[in-house]
């Protein structure tokens, strides 16, 4: 009998409707993107960037290609060379390109980097109608790194890559130049 009434009056449907209507009075949980944005945790894996050392603004990257080897999608390409920098021989990356169209944002490159030169930022809005601009070159990566320095540092700390203090500074891959000879700058490597 009760069941009959339930069937006639669509009781279970009404109950459902009641629940639905009650949500008119619940605070919004949606955000009006792009006017509002979520706050992202430090761990967020966004656009990659290259970092410099804090103390003297020199590039951390030594062009060791380990990120290239670690990358599961093969989107990184590094070309390295040698240069003289204030009397020291330094290996550095002449080119550092990340093809963002291929990048899977797994963060393996950051984990691999032996000098913590790479980090991820919270930047995720770089859609464009020019696909070529999605190949981030060295300049662009440093630009992101300089601009989003705090986020990048936060990422490294959050992912146990670096302590709050800059521990990587102990070892800087700067080698003394051989003094017995007149320093002759290396000829430019053809790329």
């Amino acid at each position: 009998m009760k069941k009959f009434f339930h069937n006639v009056f669509f009781r279970e449907i009404l109950k459902g409707l009641k629940l639905t209507f009650s949500h008119y009075f619940v605070k919004d949980i949606t955000l009006q993107y792009p006017h509002e944005k979520t706050s992202l945790p430090d761990t967020f894996r966004g656009a990659l960037c290259l970092l410099r050392y804090d103390e003297n603004e020199t590039e951390r990257c030594v062009g060791c290609d380990l990120c290239e080897a670690a990358c599961p999608s093969g989107c990184i390409s590094v070309v390295s060379a040698e240069k003289l920098e204030s009397g020291d021989v330094v290996r550095y990356a002449t080119d550092f390109d990340i093809d963002i169209t291929k990048c899977v944002f797994c963060g393996f490159c950051v984990e691999a980097c032996p000098v913590n030169a790479l980090a991820m930022t919270k930047s995720y809005e770089y859609s464009t109608n020019n696909k070529r601009s999605l190949i981030f070159d060295k300049a662009k990566l440093y630009e992101i790194g300089d601009h989003r320095h705090v986020e990048a540092k936060g990422y490294l700390v959050a992912h146990d890559q670096e302590g709050e203090e800059e521990t990587v500074s102990e070892y800087r891959y700067r080698f003394p130049y051989y003094q017995k000879q007149e320093p002759v700058p290396e000829p430019e490597k053809s790329t």
Binding site: P41, T43, F44, R45, G107, A158
Partner: peptide, 8 residues
């Protein structure tokens, strides 16, 4: 929570 945990 996952984003908090691993970033994605």
């Amino acid at each position: 929570l996952f984003t908090e945990l691993c970033g994605a």
